[in-house]
Design a protein around this nucleic acid. Structure first.
Lengths: 154, 154
DNA sequence: CAGGGTAATGAGTTATGCTAAGGAACATGC
DNA sequence: GCATGTTCCTTAGCATAACTCATTACCCTG
């Protein structure tokens, strides 16, 4: 049962090509996120916890509120996540220098080591995926990765 | 089988770049999926239900098992999702012509109309996002969309 | 110093997936 | 043709991870 498949090669903001791209993007992102959930490198860390550690690695330290906004999670959820990470010795909580309401979350050396390890393990997953993609497809993925990041926190 | 697999021992050109890309991709996909969850067009439909409807729209009709595989969900979950969609009058269940164990799920006219409406609403979201992306970034996104879809069901 | 606004958190609920187990329909051996 | 094993959908029970609402502590302005 064939349906209207708009031309993806043609461009211009707001037209059918973009709508179709967004459609495909949404579907792919949802299914991929489900896969990633299952494909987690470390059983003891949820995807969001991993994501938070990644954000901390990129941005240095941040307050729980900042992290919640970046990860698109409600503050109470971030409180929980940070508490779990702290219990595992992966982040450190310090009082905010200027505002005693806030706290500053930063990663520990242990988190650093863990990220390195996880990076190594991800290469295996990467390699298995590489079998299904040609170099051109990889190039497109690499090109789009920063755009997706921008989209994620836009 | 190992055509494009990066050389892990040497750390060649595709290695670190690919690892970084996968890193960024994972993080972006997780956060984006969370955003999409909130951006849902119809409050009564979960993201997965939407994704299933999208799949049905692309592929015509399918059995619950096929849908479960496509969406990377276990069969019992798909049973429930399909049941919910049926209760909402968005899909129709018919007996399989050849195999009476299976069923055939197809979308109703109402789902058709709903998808059209949702497509229209997504354009608003799209327009708001378009302000933050230039044409070059959109082009990269369009190019990567099919690759992401491939990745999602690889 | 009173009052509004913001940060983090605690408690309870909801959503959404999973595993285990079962029943019906097919496929294949003899 | 029937017994056996397999496949498909489903039911039931459970786990996780998010959310909302309410609370407390703190900052800042008038």
């Amino acid at each position: 049962m064939l349906r209207n498949m708009p031309d993806l090669s043609r461009g211009g903001p707001g037209d059918d090509a973009d709508a179709a791209a967004v459609n495909a993007l949404r579907s792919a992102v949802i299914r991929l996120s489900r896969r990633l959930k299952h494909q987690r490198v470390d059983e003891s860390l949820s995807p969001t916890e991993m994501s938070v550690l990644g954000t901390l690695a990129r941005c240095g330290s941040a307050t729980p509120g900042e992290l919640a906004r970046k990860e698109h999670v409600q503050p109470p959820s971030m409180t929980r996540i940070v508490a779990l990470l702290e219990a595992k010795g992966l982040v450190r909580l310090e009082p905010h220098p200027d505002d005693r309401r806030q706290k500053v979350v930063s990663q520990t050396e242990r988190a650093e080591a863990m990220l390195e390890e996880s990076r190594r393990r991800r290469n295996a997953w990467l390699a298995s995926l590489a079998e299904g993609l040609d170099e051109d497809e990889w190039a497109k993925l690499r090109a789009a990765a920063p755009v997706l990041e921008k989209l994620a926190h836009l």
